[in-house]
Design a protein around this nucleic acid. Structure first.
Lengths: 153, 153
DNA sequence: TTTATTAAAGACTAATTTGTCTTAAATATA
DNA sequence: TATATTTAAGACAAATTAGTCTTTAATAAA
């Protein structure tokens, strides 16, 4: 698995946030957890990491919740990954040799260095807005249970 | 982490086997575990999975051990990965949605499907022989402690 | 046949990740 | 101010992965 479960949930939640984005309103974590079928408490902890990384804001109390701290055009998937799993997967040796790199390469280094860079580029060049836009246009899927249209309602 | 620790150790062990490959001699697991600095018992269990997958043979008793069941030119990295982690990483949705695919794609599906296919191709097109050959030629590294030359001795 | 050497098998422990639950803190509204 | 609603925090439990240890089985060689 490239991304941890926590990270996967974080990305799904971020895409959801972009989908229903309104600059000045908060999304309830409880609502989102039901829509995305993710455990409420687990999702809460994951969103805490994301807010602590500065990507979202939270607000307590009635009508409180979470919102994106920037326009979804300005947030890329890799920022979410960074907040939860970190970026080690894009720098580490594929067979786990410490210090593997240009100077002391492992046998797979040359090929893997290219592949992991492409992965990193992919996540760096993908904004939440782009994904949300495509999702609406093509009715893509962010939940096993609900269609995008049902998620937005 | 793309590959589990067990899988990483399995790949390292396989590369080592290719490096010291002689058609008719067995490599002791204890020796290999010391050379590669992998726990002997853990490595034993991993090699059992690989032998059960038919990629290696084992032989008990004095001068027993493990050998490759095919020429290293005919074994690719993906066969090792398949024996230990399975190939799910090359077919699954990057954000974990069951059933994600051409018909019911998630927002990242299109990009991820390309990336994961490239990863799969990379592992499929990389033989143990090629890696071992390059390792000797370029003195690449398979252990944190020993150089290739020391490993071969 | 006895002994030493090796892998196989499986029980066990430790560490990490995933998920749950309870309480506290902040806030809006009546 | 009192109450309801919401996130924050942290203890806890379950599941998975990683790693260790002991015993058994196979084999070679003395």
């Amino acid at each position: 698995m490239l991304l941890s479960k926590a990270c996967i949930y974080g990305v799904r939640a971020s895409l959801y946030m972009a989908l229903v984005y309104h600059k000045d309103s908060y999304i309830s974590i409880r609502d989102m957890s039901q829509k995305l079928d993710i455990s409420f408490h687990f999702l809460t902890k994951i969103l805490q990491q994301i807010t602590q990384a500065g990507l979202m804001h939270s607000y307590k109390g009635p009508n409180g919740g979470i919102n994106l701290s920037k326009n979804p055009r300005e947030i890329t998937i890799i920022e979410i990954i960074d907040a939860i799993d970190g970026l080690d997967v894009f720098t580490e040796c594929v067979i786990g040799l410490p210090g593997c790199g240009k100077n002391k390469p492992c046998p797979l280094h040359e090929k893997w260095a290219i592949a992991r860079q492409e992965l990193q580029d992919m996540f760096e060049n993908t904004t939440l807005h782009e994904m949300a836009f495509n999702s609406k246009k093509l009715n893509l899927r962010l939940s096993n249970e609900f269609s995008i249209k049902e998620l937005i309602d």
